[in-house]
Amino acid sequence: MQSSSPKRKTSFYLLAGFFGLFILFLYGPMLSIFILSFQGVQGSMTFPLRDASTHWFGDLFTSTRYGDLGGAFRRSMIMAIAALALTAVICFFAGLAFRKRFWGSGPIFYLAIVSLVIPGLLLSFGIGQMFQLSGMPLHWMISGLGAHLSWTLPFGLLIMFAVLNRFDSSWEEAARDAGATPSQILRYVTLPILFPGLIAVALFGFTLSYDEFPRSLLTLGTRNTLPLEVANMTSSVTTPALYAIGTITTVISLVVIAVAFSAIAIVQRRRSKRMATS
């Protein structure tokens, strides 16, 4: 038996309805793509689902009409991992540096943040122009990665500030007082305490780069990354294979996030395990 609860007000149902719509809007499209990617051989790009199969996933890997999809995926992964590593390392040290009011720290901070405001497409144009002017060829791992970093670094720096907000610098002082050298303080105190936050920074570096479209448009040179490749395909490919790509990339994103969260969980487990065993 349900215990008697006070009668809900109308506002509760209105707000709950609104929240339901919000959830539907967030996950509905993703869910439809996910379902339609399992369309049968005879099925079209729209509902209804006929004879569910994994045909279009196989088609992606066997057919030649999708161009260099595997290469684009590989490049996207390499770039995203490079962005992850560079964002984590640079934002970690930049965040630590900005704790001090060094000479010019204000202007440098604003310069770093302004690139968040500049439209990505414009930035993409500019980088393309700059490389052309200086006679350097565009390359996805050079101009492309640079364009992605202009997006991930300021983002990562802002997250790092939030992470550092809860960091008490007297921990470092206590380590110094115990005779630790600056590198020991970094290794034994600062880095381990900030590590969970740092994973969040790295994760943003990865996902922001992995699905970046506007900043990639004119900076990649002759080879495409996955978002550009998929965008190209929308005009030429008219099969549910497109949805299969969507499903695969979403799953990969989820796996990366899951790996990151388990990394945080493992760190915390190790801490509590050390506490439990004597």
Partner: peptide
């Protein structure tokens, strides 16, 4: 600091949150 024969006990204790009491 750390090699002048002094040890400081901090007002907020500044214990390392990620290490056990022993460590």
């Amino acid at each position: 600091t750390g090699s002048r024969g002094t040890a400081l006990m901090f007002q907020n204790y500044a214990l390392f949150p990620h290490l056990s009491v022993l460590d």
